[in-house]
Amino acid sequence: MQKIEDHSGTKYYLITLKVNGDSYTRAVKANTLLVNVLREDLDLTGTKKGCELGDCGSCTVLLDGKPVNSCLILALEADGHEITTIEGLAQNDKPDKLQEAFVENAAIQCGYCTPGMIMSAKALLTRNPHPTEGEVREAIAGNLCRCTGYVNIVKAIMSAAEEQQ
């Protein structure tokens, strides 16, 4: 990681993130969080900030395929890693099956938890294509939703899993 200093002595690091298949190189300070690089530098605002402490899951992205809270990851620590955000799921603007299942099952209300919720569900279905309802609930237990009571969210994930079959 290359380190640069500006005139005032503030240090910047050159990092490269592979986000949704594309490489981005940016100069960031040590205290820059991954969520802020995604939202502010790359304009990928589908990743939300809800609690900023890893309690709500709104900022969930996949880091090398694993769901993580991007609010608790230094951008420097993500250097060289592959990141998938909610914007990376749709192909040529066609929503992913899981995204469609959320829409069709009325699993979305305010929508603020939705991107993070879908990323957690995506990671689950990739790893475990035919989860039980309990496994679905466990996988999204780190994603709080204030609107839906999770009823239709669980239904949507289960239906997307069935469709994969």
Binding site: K48, K49, I86, P95, F102, V103, I108, G111, Y112, T114
Partner: peptide, 23 residues
Amino acid sequence: KSVPRIDGVAKATGRAKYTGDLK
């Protein structure tokens, strides 16, 4: 009728902008 909500796709794909997302 249970039509899907009109903002569903925008919200599911992360395109939906909330105030804090605006620049």
